[in-house]
Simulated scan of single mutants.
Amino acid sequence: MPDSAFKVMAVLEKADGPVSGEVISNELGITRAAVWKHINELRMMGYDISSSQKEGYRLTRMSNKLLPYEIHKKLHTKFIGKKMRYLENTPSTIWAGKQLCAEGDVEKMHGMVIIAEEQTGGVGRMGRAWVSPSGGIWVTVVLKPHIPIDHVFMITMAGSVAVARAIRKEFSLSALIKWPNDIFIGNKKVAGLLLELAAESDTVHYCLLGMGIDANISLAQFAPGLRDLITSISAELGHEVDRAAFLARVLKEFESQYLLVESGEYDTIIREWKSLSCTLEHRVDIRTLKNSFSGEAVDIDEFGALIIRKDNGKLERVIAGDCFHQ
């Protein structure tokens, strides 16, 4: 992102009215030609800026893109999101994260957030396609965790808690967590998370936590067969939301939960996850790669496995699979 253009934006934002190119030039120590160039860059990023020879430049409408500049104005974290990569479109933000981790120092990228306006090849659990049109929030957080490999799933739990809490606090919508990593409002999915990691033996080289949130998406953008299963925040509220402010809230919530994971406070994460669960104490149908069965979801263990009391009274521990509420 061109930092110089956002220095011009900062001047426009603090002005009470139009600002001449000469004033901007003098304040920033750049040429009038450079001012004009940066104004055009800002327009290409979605900002409406009027101009006249008599009065100068005036910011008339903010960009509706999920720009790091806008997020950072509202971000209150110590390390999550302090570094960002912004992409207009990409196959998936997790794919972009893998590329970055393969080429750079992961320790230095810890906490980086990769943002895409649109994903052309978004994936969910078990390789399923994830519809990712513009208007949503499609991000991946790059992490270099220092936790035992058998507790890495706690990162997904922390992310699920963070997204549900952010939706509840920001919009007063009753978001709940459906095992293992989906966020629901009522009986419709509004968000999902996916964790991928590179590990060797007991060492985790890096984790990539992908988050997909249907924020400002019209349900008409989804295929007819999906409209009864999926919702968006804007559809629930009846109006579009400030994606930058909301993502800043999600990242703040996630940092709080992630620090609990790093400090080994797994019980705290599990308690919070349980309090937000719409799966526990409900009858469910489970499908795994090996078998299918039904029963009551009675608990979740310290490794994120769902505990099912089957109809024959036996307890079954489900590490991975699909869970359908009855």
Rank of each mutant, 00 (worst) to 15 (best):
residue 3 D to E: 15
residue 7 K to G: 10
residue 7 K to I: 08
residue 8 V to P: 06
residue 15 A to R: 04
residue 17 G to T: 05
residue 18 P to I: 01
residue 18 P to K: 07
residue 18 P to N: 02
residue 22 E to V: 15
residue 22 E to H: 07
residue 23 V to Y: 06
residue 27 E to H: 10
residue 40 N to L: 12
residue 41 E to I: 11
residue 50 S to C: 04
residue 53 Q to L: 08
residue 55 E to T: 09
residue 58 R to C: 04
residue 58 R to V: 02
residue 59 L to E: 00
residue 61 R to E: 02
residue 62 M to P: 08
residue 80 I to Q: 02
residue 86 Y to M: 10
residue 88 E to D: 15
residue 90 T to N: 12
residue 90 T to A: 14
residue 91 P to Q: 05
residue 92 S to A: 14
residue 93 T to E: 04
residue 94 I to P: 00
residue 94 I to T: 11
residue 99 Q to H: 11
residue 101 C to P: 08
residue 103 E to Y: 01
residue 110 H to C: 13
residue 117 E to G: 04
residue 119 Q to P: 12
residue 120 T to C: 11
residue 122 G to Y: 05
residue 129 A to R: 14
residue 134 S to I: 11
residue 136 G to F: 08
residue 140 T to M: 09
residue 141 V to Q: 07
residue 141 V to M: 12
residue 143 L to G: 12
residue 147 I to H: 08
residue 148 P to D: 08
residue 151 H to A: 13
residue 153 F to L: 13
residue 154 M to C: 10
residue 157 M to D: 03
residue 160 S to C: 12
residue 161 V to L: 06
residue 167 I to H: 04
residue 169 K to C: 05
residue 169 K to D: 07
residue 175 A to K: 01
residue 178 K to E: 06
residue 180 P to T: 05
residue 184 F to P: 05
residue 188 K to A: 12
residue 194 L to Y: 08
residue 195 L to H: 03
residue 195 L to I: 11
residue 195 L to G: 10
residue 196 E to Q: 14
residue 197 L to S: 15
residue 198 A to G: 13
residue 200 E to C: 09
residue 201 S to H: 15
residue 203 T to S: 14
residue 203 T to R: 14
residue 204 V to K: 09
residue 208 L to S: 03
residue 211 M to A: 11
residue 217 I to N: 10
residue 219 L to N: 13
residue 224 P to I: 06
residue 231 T to P: 00
residue 233 I to T: 01
residue 236 E to K: 03
residue 240 E to S: 11
residue 246 F to S: 09
residue 254 F to V: 05
residue 254 F to N: 04
residue 256 S to Y: 07
residue 259 L to P: 01
residue 261 V to H: 07
residue 264 G to S: 10
residue 267 D to K: 14
residue 268 T to P: 00
residue 269 I to V: 08
residue 270 I to R: 13
residue 272 E to L: 10
residue 281 E to G: 02
residue 284 V to E: 00
residue 286 I to D: 00
residue 291 N to M: 08
residue 291 N to Y: 02
residue 297 A to W: 05
residue 297 A to F: 07
residue 300 I to R: 08
residue 313 G to D: 00
residue 317 R to C: 12
residue 321 G to S: 06
residue 326 Q to M: 04
